[in-house]
Write a protein that binds this DNA or RNA. Structure first.
Length: 464
RNA sequence: GUCCCCAUCGUCUAGAGGCCUAGGACACCUGGUUUUCAUCCAGGCAACAGGGGUUCGACUCCCCUUGGGGACGCCA
């Protein structure tokens, strides 16, 4: 059987971290087995679905590089399929019309909750042999319900959780078409997963309880039941569920916040899945290794520190042109143009080693393009009246120096020697004068990159 | 309330009955490299939720307790 997996988000919000991992695992499973990955947009909830959300999801997938072989397919464009299957179930007696009103159902639910029992449909309109149904009310539009089997159990071997078994007595008759005729989630999923030939349904943990109903419907339709893999959820850093006001942010927010997609992907891959002691790997490697057997069934807490560590790693190792393009954009956002000298690639080659965040990296190197304003504390501390004459003398030497790293280095170290100083005594004031702060890579390297004219001018401005 | 699921260092995890004196990674601490900071390198701290079984032997299998999560919509 050919492997076909799917990612089926509902466009009611952006693509968040949990959805991204679900998509990643489905994508990787298809890749691993030479199958197809389908993107299906579950937009049957007209009230809450928006085109903006669709776009946000597409953008997120695109940024992460989770390419789909088919789709995006929209459920709203597949109405005739659902209608056909609905008719099939109605005709075969696996579904029936129910005239119970919403209010009626609400009252029922309230009563059941108060009695401490599981809220469920009471089966009022469920046709039964020898049962006489109530008289059909004149002005109510009926919903269609699936006639769930009443006895026995539904069980399946979940590919991550193992055997799961739920008694049919726990299940009531779900509404599969609303009174306006539109099909509901559980039914659309069943029709789509079977018609699209999905072989492995990889989805969030929260769907475990929908699975037995879906299996019953698939059986009633006479279709093949796919394999299921239910991924546990991703918790916030504090162990709490992610919610809108609590950590559930769009994956695009991570882009904004200075993360590389490579880092997010690698991090997500290791959240709930493992391959021995391997921690750092690219997506090609991941797709080769990925399997459902090594997914943890328990929930995982999101850990920003580890993400930062991976981000630092990828900042160090990705293609320098990619990094340059990214940082150039981030500098733009800071109002800094990196189009002039020094070449950003040269700067990044020196600075990428020390960064763990793209925004941080961009703001750290901004002083190559915009003269920094030094903090008065640093100026006071390092640019002392004793050192100024030394710097003045060095400035003169620098003017006659060939602008190469070795020569610059020589000037700095001779200054140290000639004045019998400790290296930092010279390096620190230099740093403050050149970059505005007391931390930077080797001053000679910074000087080499900054350029002669700029270096001379920046030093001079402190010696007037 | 009912049903379902889950449970190894602070966090992510390895672990398919003896390989476990429980391994790796992040974080943290210490030391080294370094021109400051960072990087990098070396070392260290740190866990099988509790109780019963099964077995010659249990982190691994079973049961219970506890704790956590999820589901119970004309939402998906």
């Amino acid at each position: 059987m050919t492997v076909r997996t799917r990612f089926a988000p509902s466009p009611t919000g952006f693509l968040h971290i949990g959805g991204a991992r679900t998509a990643l695992f489905s994508w990787a499973y298809a890749k691993k087995h030479g199958g197809k990955f389908v993107l299906r947009v579950e937009d049957t909830d007209l009230a809450r679905s928006t085109p903006e959300a669709v776009q946000a999801i597409l953008d997120g997938m695109d940024w992460l590089g989770l390419t789909y072989d088919e789709g995006p397919l929209y459920q709203m464009q597949r109405m005739e399929h659902y209608q056909k299957r609905l008719d099939q179930l109605l005709e075969s007696g696996h579904a029936y019309y129910c005239y119970s009103s919403k209010d009626e159902l609400d009252v029922l639910r309230e009563q059941q909750k108060q009695q401490g029992v599981k809220p469920r449909y009471d089966g009022k309109w469920r046709p039964e042999e020898g049962k006489t149904l109530p008289e059909v009310p004149a002005d109510t539009k009926p919903v269609v319900r699936f006639k769930n089997p009443q006895g026995g159990v539904v069980s399946w071997h979940d590919m991550v959780k193992g055997k799961i078994e739920i008694a049919n007595t726990e299940l009531d008759d779900v509404i599969i078409a609303r009174s306006d005729g539109t099909p509901t989630y559980n039914f659309c999923v069943v029709v789509d997963d079977t018609e699209m030939g999905i072989s492995q349904v990889i989805r969030g943990d929260d769907h475990v309880n929908n699975t037995p109903r879906q299996i019953n419907m698939i059986n009633a339709l006479g279709a093949t039941v796919p394999q299921y893999a239910h991924l546990s959820m991703i918790l916030g850093a504090d162990g709490q569920k992610l919610s809108k006001r609590h950590g559930a942010v769009s994956v695009m927010q991570y882009h904004e916040d200075g993360y590389l997609p490579e880092a997010i992907l690698n991090y997500l891959a290791r959240l709930g899945w493992s391959h021995g002691d391997d921690e750092v790997f690219d997506m090609q490697q991941f797709c080769e290794w990925f399997d459902l057997d090594h997914i943890t069934p328990s929930a995982a807490q999101f850990n920003t520190e580890k993400l930062n560590w991976l981000n630092a790693h990828y900042i160090k190792t990705i293609d320098i042109d990619v990094l340059s393009a990214d940082i150039t954009q981030r500098l733009d956002k800071l109002g800094v143009s990196a189009k002039m000298e020094p070449p950003i690639k040269r700067v990044l080659e020196l600075y990428r080693e020390r960064a763990s965040n793209l925004n941080q990296l961009a703001s750290d190197i901004a002083y190559f393009y915009v003269r920094p304003e030094a903090h008065s504390d640093d100026v006071e501390k390092h640019i002392t009246s004793e050192i100024k004459p030394v710097m003045q003398k060095m400035l003169e030497t620098l003017k006659n120096t060939v602008w190469e790293l070795e020569a610059i280095h020589h000037v700095v170290s001779s200054t140290v020697k000639e004045n019998s100083l400790k290296f930092p005594k010279v390096a620190m004031p230099l740093r403050v004068m050149l970059v505005g702060i007391a931390q930077s890579p080797s001053v000679d390297e910074v000087m080499a990159i900054l350029g002669k004219e700029e270096v001379l001018q920046r030093i001079e401005s402190y010696l007037k």
